[in-house]
Simulated scan of single mutants.
Amino acid sequence: MTRKINSVISWRSALALAAILSGCGGGADSGLGGGGSSSAGGCSYTDMISSSERTQANSCGIQVSGNFAQADSMLQSVIATCQAGNKAQADSYYNSTYQQAVSYARSVSSALSCGSGSGGSITNTSPQTFYNLCVKTTAVSGGLRKQAYCWGPVQQGDGGCSPGDGFSYLSQHSDLNTCGAAGSTFVNQ
Rank of each mutant, 00 (worst) to 15 (best):
W151L: 12
N132D: 09
A71W: 10
S73K: 04
A71T: 13
Y149P: 04
Y149V: 12
L15V: 09
L75K: 10
G26S: 08
Y169G: 02
C114T: 06
D91L: 10
S65P: 04
G25M: 01
W151T: 08
T46C: 08
G33K: 10
Q100D: 07
S65N: 08
D158R: 13
L15F: 08
S126H: 12
G183R: 02
G23Y: 05
G66K: 07
Q100R: 11
A28F: 03
G159Q: 06
A101M: 03
A182N: 05
Y94L: 07
T138F: 06
Q63W: 08
W151I: 09
S109V: 04
S22Y: 09
A90Y: 00
A18E: 10
G35L: 13
S116P: 05
G31M: 07
S30W: 00
G25K: 05
D47F: 09
S30H: 04
A181G: 06
T123G: 11
N95E: 12
F68T: 08
I9G: 01
I20H: 07
N58K: 05
Y94S: 02
Q83V: 03
S10F: 03
A139M: 12
C43P: 03
G41C: 14
D158G: 07
S118N: 03
V64M: 08
D29N: 03
G41A: 15
V154K: 12
G61W: 04
D29I: 00
S59F: 01
I122G: 04
S51L: 15
S52R: 10
G152H: 04
V64E: 03
H173T: 01
